[in-house]
């Protein structure tokens, strides 16, 4: 069976190889974050996906839907075998998550810069209705170039959303390669801090460390929180691809794709 993180990675690999490709890089960089959230941190019920007291997760970097699908399948929302249908005609698992078709997907995402304001609205509703669920929002670091991210950050601070957690997948690489060659987003932690967030940096592949951090936040509930998760894009791909722009989207035959995974 393996650990939760291994199962999620296996699911991503299964989907990519069976379908002939996908956004492997960004999916593999958040696999361990999702392993922590779905495996240890979040209250959720695969049998009742819309359970009203569940914690909410918005995958703002919707192109990493593969990782979310794998995490949901491993958690029991739908059969793991369905991952093999990823991207195929008539399937419900496409590149970007669709909440209309896929159980466990909170809201449809894919266009970058939308997820945090959606999460702000969800967290604010919880506050209004005096529900104690947490709202998690996973952003890409490249996505932080979108102005709407910072509009939402201001709103989260203004509304004092104590149960909102933003996780930034700091893998350093966008569609066009190294982010820092295109735009300077550092000092990223200071930026979030200056927008009123309590900021922590963590190794985004250390599930134990993330478990401890997220659980501490839940006990404290003094957000909004920003967690900058340092990750490797394409973590688990072979050395020549992992951590490079080539990992962003893989395509090829089943055999050639299998050879790109180092597990």
């Amino acid at each position: 069976m393996g650990t939760k993180q291994e199962q999620i990675r296996d699911g991503i690999k299964m989907a990519v190889c069976a379908s002939g490709g996908g956004h492997a890089g960004g999916s593999l960089s958040i696999a361990d974050i999702l392993a922590s959230l779905y495996g240890h941190v979040m209250k959720h019920n695969p049998q009742v996906p819309d359970w009203k007291d569940r914690d909410r997760l918005i995958l703002s970097k919707g192109h990493s839907g593969l990782a979310l699908y794998s995490a949901l399948a491993v958690s029991g929302y739908f059969p793991i075998e369905e991952l093999k249908k990823f991207g195929s005609a008539g399937a419900r698992l496409m590149n970007h998550p669709d909440s209309h078709t896929t159980p466990g997907v909170e809201m449809s995402t894919g266009s970058l810069g939308h997820g945090l304001p959606l999460a702000v609205g969800i967290a604010f509703a919880g506050q209004l209705k005096k529900q104690d669920y947490f709202t998690y929002c996973i952003l890409g670091d490249g996505e932080c170039c979108e102005g709407s991210v910072w509009e939402a950050a201001m709103a989260a601070d203004a509304q004092q959303l104590k149960r909102l957690v933003v996780v930034v997948d700091r893998n350093g690489i966008g569609n066009d390669g190294h982010l820092e060659n295109i735009v300077q987003i550092e000092p990223l932690a200071d930026k979030w801090r200056s927008f009123g967030f309590a900021v922590e940096e963590v190794n985004g592949h250390d599930v134990q460390a993330m478990n401890a951090l997220f659980m501490h936040q839940r006990e404290e509930a003094q957000g909004p929180y920003a967690v900058i998760a340092h990750t490797v894009k394409g973590k688990g791909l072979i050395e020549t691809i992992a951590g490079t722009g080539s990992s962003h989207y893989l395509s090829g035959t089943q055999d050639s794709l299998k050879q790109k995974f180092d597990f």
């Binding site: 909170e106 809201m107 810069g113 939308h114 945090l116 304001p117 959606l118 999460a119 702000v120 609205g121 969800i122 967290a123 604010f124 509703a125 919880g126 209705k129 102005g147 709407s148 509009e151 939402a152 201001m154 709103a155």
Partner: peptide, 14 residues
């Protein structure tokens, strides 16, 4: 833009 998306999040919660 922020207003629209926050509104969608609130609407998601009823």
């Amino acid at each position: 833009q922020n207003m629209m998306s926050i509104a969608a999040g609130l609407a998601h919660e009823g």
